[in-house]
Design a protein around this nucleic acid. Sequence first.
DNA 1: TATGAATGAGTTTTCATTCAT
DNA 2: AATGAATGAAAACTCATTCAT
Lengths: 215, 215, 215, 215
Amino acid sequence: MTRRARDDDAKQARRADILQAARRLFLSDERQLPSVARIAEAAGLAKGTVYLYFATKEEIFIALLDEEFSNLLTAIGEAFKPSAVATEQVQAVIARMVDYLDEHPEFLSLDALAYSVLEQNLPEQVVRTFKLNLTRRLTLAGQLLDATLGLQAGRGTQLLLRSYALIRGLWQTLDYPAPLQALLSDPAFSVIRPPFRDELAASLQEYWRGALTPA
Amino acid sequence: MTRRARDDDAKQARRADILQAARRLFLSDERQLPSVARIAEAAGLAKGTVYLYFATKEEIFIALLDEEFSNLLTAIGEAFKPSAVATEQVQAVIARMVDYLDEHPEFLSLDALAYSVLEQNLPEQVVRTFKLNLTRRLTLAGQLLDATLGLQAGRGTQLLLRSYALIRGLWQTLDYPAPLQALLSDPAFSVIRPPFRDELAASLQEYWRGALTPA
Amino acid sequence: MTRRARDDDAKQARRADILQAARRLFLSDERQLPSVARIAEAAGLAKGTVYLYFATKEEIFIALLDEEFSNLLTAIGEAFKPSAVATEQVQAVIARMVDYLDEHPEFLSLDALAYSVLEQNLPEQVVRTFKLNLTRRLTLAGQLLDATLGLQAGRGTQLLLRSYALIRGLWQTLDYPAPLQALLSDPAFSVIRPPFRDELAASLQEYWRGALTPA
Amino acid sequence: MTRRARDDDAKQARRADILQAARRLFLSDERQLPSVARIAEAAGLAKGTVYLYFATKEEIFIALLDEEFSNLLTAIGEAFKPSAVATEQVQAVIARMVDYLDEHPEFLSLDALAYSVLEQNLPEQVVRTFKLNLTRRLTLAGQLLDATLGLQAGRGTQLLLRSYALIRGLWQTLDYPAPLQALLSDPAFSVIRPPFRDELAASLQEYWRGALTPA
DNA sequence: TATGAATGAGTTTTCATTCAT
DNA sequence: AATGAATGAAAACTCATTCAT
């Protein structure tokens, strides 16, 4: 039997264990949420224990996604360097986003299930809270952007939201499950199979250039 | 028992009936594929009959999506006017895309399930064929774009692919199921709830401007 | 694979098979409804097939109970002999009830779950329909009683309802699961363990005598 | 942490707290035993603590039922008035039973679960002890009845047992959960919905009259 | 061709009870 | 004695797909 998590720290640790197990399993079979039984097993816990920390399976994954969003936006916030010129700031932000996403492949995979699977099976209040967190973080990062680049109030948030849309769309367009990759190795498909990271960087560059260029 | 479809025309008609029923049902409850039983009922057929025309449920919807893609790219192709200047051509293309998507709400809803649901439950060969069709149409439209705007070979396709990514990401970011909309009516959420059509048009403008502006 | 039930007769037969399997299993472990898996297995069908004939597990058993009620009240109806005198009619009715219950041990066992298990887990409309059937049959039998014994309108139904209460209460008071019977074999318990059939007959006699004796 | 119950008095008090909490919760949702978690919470204790006083959840409720039986039979015993005539004695006993049951709605609700739920999940020895207590009390009250009414030895107990059967059967036949009541408000159902108290009194009158009338 | 009866895999969640602290 | 974290058994139901008729 597992050592009991009595105090708050131990409980946080246990919760983190579950999230970690869920993340690991999800990564090994993207596009499908692993069963609670597997998560519990991977975390070395009984099924029932998982439900002491999360009300439903989907809450595990929305928590994971929430965490990742937080990390991403924090990373973006840290990309700004006070003294740099605007162009460099933008480059830094884009580079930071690209790096983060590259290092966290589970983020976009999970995000791709948010619309069709997670939000579908989650009580509305939970989705609302998730969206609220997201909105707050997005707004904060947007304000930082406004200040740094001297943008009109709210414009930074708008840019981030549109960038996010571009990112998630690009992922879903360019990510293929392993078995399909083999089938698409024919040159006929090369136009729809550019490397994700490069395409992401290039697309973001183009979008931000257009967004910051006076019409 | 329904009148039997003996010749090819009758078969095509029956197939179309099924697609039409599926489309209608899907529209009434986006984010979830209707069951085969309901599709069959809506088409006035028995469940088994549906399987004479489509090997799996997902094939129905991938066929629907394929059809829509074809229509969209055809519409884009028709947007070009030989004599117009480049800027106007771009405007026309964007306007055509926005209009098409506005008139075909099922397209993006269905597209949003492609990554997580459709491709998941489809034999690889079927996905491959779908992707092949898509690639061909995209390439053709891209070539037209190259010619019209005097772009480097392949650049038009690239622009279209990136635009598509932006569009699908934007949809998933801004579309909310009805019950959630009520919960997000608070002004706190206004930044993540701009009207889709406006946001789409503005984002595409920005992206294309950036893409066509020399770095 | 089982032969398919195409026409209505075959379907009725299949439904009856399921009911029969459920009855048999229930009898072998009263006080607990068998699982659908076991019922299906006992009927030689797949689980899903059971659900083609009954919407929920409880509906199987309420159907069984409904059937038994119908049989019991039919039996009572048949107990009347046109030419007999009142006292004999009453004796005949009581004897018929006692005999029926003796021959159908599953009836009272199941009835004992109606209040606490069946009605609990059944949609209200189903319970309503069941009660409606019951009321109708009870009323019909009651009217027959009124006519035969020259009772005031409605009195026969009342007598039947009260008799039913006495019967079901007696069963729950005197029926013990096998393992408990051994433990209660001590003479100390003899007062609470008279043979059910005798006690039932005697109690009904007393009740009806009192009910038909002017105060 | 709650103050520890060291001496016997304190322990008895804690036990009583648990019973009281269980009774209150059960009353608010008849037909279903409240969970141990809720009972513990309502008693201001931890779940584990409940198990220091009762071996299983059902033991809590069988203890409650035992208590109620004791009270009922005590009440019956107190109904006898030395100098009254037989008929009045009987009336007094019936009236006392009706009053007690009217004042203690949890008794019959709980009793209705005894056969199907409580005895099911209880170790046989516990059931045996419960039955033994019941038998003793019943016998005592029965003897009192024998003496008072000049009955043959054992007859009083028999009358009480049969009355109890009538009572519990009547309750289960006439008690409906709130949502069902609305559905049964149609006059079509009036025959199966007489007021419990009236029906109880009338039925008991009839039964006792019959039982005390020479055949 | 058309039908629709039959199949059966697959998974979440609750909650009484235990036992480490 | 008290706590409450951990356990894990248990089962209903859906629905895509098959195939006998």
